[in-house]
Design a protein around this nucleic acid. Structure first.
Length: 487
RNA sequence: GGCGCCAUCGUCAAGCGGUUAAGACACCGCCCUUUCACGGCGGGUUCGCGGGUUCGAGUCCCGCUGGCGUCACCA
């Protein structure tokens, strides 16, 4: 049996859509699970769409997703070059060959309207010039450069191909146009280059999106014309997005971030994105959801692939992301979180690992961090209402006493550590005869101006440090004393 | 519109003729609790519709409906 070889063949747009990334992932996982090769090939035959540095961008993105090609523009391999624009001579020779074989012909008009009367004598577009006397025609056409080479489709009958996911798919040949194989500028079209390269590069399994199902018969006809072995097709259902109005459509900008890189910038770990995306359209048929790349390779199989489109669910991504953070050590988390902390003062900067330990269980992406820690750097404006909490029996009035006493306790603490704070605060609560919740609530509000904080009061005190903590408590006291008493 | 593909909870999905139709996310409720988070427990009319086939259909067949794709010198 032939060694399995799959490929990922993006056009260099400088943008890695999640759907593309998933296609690459599946092609990679399948190849690796079969101990085969995974090839990266750049399909840059559309000069108008060329984006500078896009190849490097694609390679970097794949690398960050841990998808490593065995062959590619910068990975070596025996079947290069792996950039289509560098293979023009190859395509040309195969196109000429096809003409000799009688499966293609030269033509120079885009459509019948493009042709003037003179042109029409030599045939215009699509099936006008295909059956004219070839020698006479070609001499004239070649003289009239630039021309195009079109594939000569059978007018009757049907073409059937096998798809692993969909079984046999049959399309009537009458549906197929005499498509362009070689463009005026000498570049091949996707539908041509693709077939030539997949054959030359010995690709055994073509894994790509469903949008290519309808053009596959054209490819099959090409393989047959050359007498080449037809590879196995696997057409993947698209990744969809859900809009606010509930409608579902192919994932696009209006659904939020859609590229791998957008997601990374938002602070999702690359391994989280691959893990999540792997499960979008593929099921391991077990209850496992968290997978390392090695596990994915081990568990991957074509049977788990889904035929129907999958909606990208940010909720689930968030959950999965949180699971990864929770599983990380405080040190590792602090490392990946580092650039999201922003500018920290000396005190906080020295407590990053500790801060991270509090943060990692309550965020779903790293970009949530700035909002979570802002109050540590800048005290938000106080609001009396915040001091009122029914469940904990706190009011703006009784807060005054609590804060006053707390300040005294805190001022006497010289060893400002979490343990020490814990001990002293506990003692203070016991002594006061009040509920833990009552005291903590008042303190939290005074210290943070928020009902919700990452970590409890003890942790905030520690993070803020002695001076700032006491300062904030005093300010809160002043604030409360200036509130007109309720009647 | 022609052609093609698809159709199980809101979402990802298991299921491959006989199941109380898994599990996860989200949601809701309760518990725990130093707020939030974390954690624990529990909850929900899910097989698009209509015909067949069969003792028996989410599973097979047909039709319908709906969604998506495709009809480029884009990939």
């Amino acid at each position: 049996m032939n060694k399995v070889r799959t490929r990922f063949a993006p056009s260099p747009t400088g943008y890695m859509h999640i759907g593309n990334l998933r296609t690459a992932l599946y092609a990679y996982l399948f190849a690796k699970s079969q101990h085969g090769d995974f090839i990266l090939r750049i399909e840059d035959t559309d000069r108008a769409r060329y984006v500078a540095d896009a190849v490097e961008f694609i390679e970097k993105t794949l690398a960050s997703a841990k998808i490593i090609p065995d062959e590619g523009p910068h990975n070596g391999g025996d079947f290069g070059p792996y950039v289509q624009s560098e293979r023009m001579k190859i395509y040309k020779s195969y196109a000429e060959k096809l003409i000799e074989l009688g499966y293609a012909y030269r033509c120079f008009c885009n459509n019948d309207d493009d042709c003037n009367d003179d042109d029409k004598k030599f045939g215009g577009y699509n099936r006008t010039c295909r059956d004219l006397d070839r020698e006479e025609l070609e001499a004239n056409i070649v003289a009239r450069k630039p021309y195009v080479i079109r594939q000569k489709m059978p007018l009757t009958g049907e073409t059937t191909f096998f798809d692993v996911l969909h079984g046999n798919i049959t399309i009537a040949n009458s549906e197929l146009e005499d498509q362009v194989l070689l463009k005026r500028d000498g570049m091949p079209t996707y539908n041509f280059a693709n077939v030539i390269d997949d054959h030359l590069m010995k690709v055994t399994h073509i894994i790509r999106g469903t949008e290519f199902i309808t053009s596959t018969p054209k490819h099959v006809l090409l393989y047959e014309a050359f007498g080449w072995e037809i590879p196995t097709f696997i057409h993947l259902a698209p990744v969809m997005g859900k809009s606010a109005d509930g409608t579902v459509s192919k994932l696009s900008k209006r659904h939020g971030a859609t590229s791998f890189n957008d997601l990374v910038e938002m602070g999702y770990l690359p391994e989280v994105i691959t893990n999540y995306v792997a499960l979008l359209g593929w099921s391991p048929k077990s209850n496992q959801e968290i997978f390392s790349m090695d596990e994915l390779i081990e568990k991957f199989s074509l049977e788990g692939l889904s035929k129907s489109p999958a909606v990208f669910d940010y909720n689930k991504l968030d959950w999965m992301s949180g699971e990864y953070f929770k599983a990380m050590s405080d040190e590792d988390f602090a490392k990946v979180a580092d650039k999201f902390f922003g500018e920290l003062d000396e005190n906080l900067a020295s407590k990053k690992v500790y801060l991270g330990s509090l943060l990692k269980t309550r965020i779903s992406k790293l970009s949530d961090i700035p909002a979570q820690i802002k109050f540590l750097q800048v005290m938000p404006p106080l609001d009396v209402e915040l001091f009122t909490n029914k469940r904990n029996k706190v009011t703006a009035e009784n807060s005054v006493g609590i804060l006053t006493d707390a300040i005294k306790v805190l001022e006497n603490i010289s060893d400002w550590t979490v343990d020490e704070l814990h001990e002293k605060i506990n003692a203070f609560v016991t002594e006061s005869g009040l509920k833990m919740g009552t005291i903590m609530w008042a303190l939290r509000i005074a210290l943070s101006g928020q009902k919700v904080t990452p970590g409890g009061v003890i942790e905030i005190l520690y993070l803020l440090g002695k001076n700032i903590s006491i300062e904030r408590l005093n300010s809160a006291l002043i604030f409360l004393s200036n509130i007109p008493k309720k009647i």
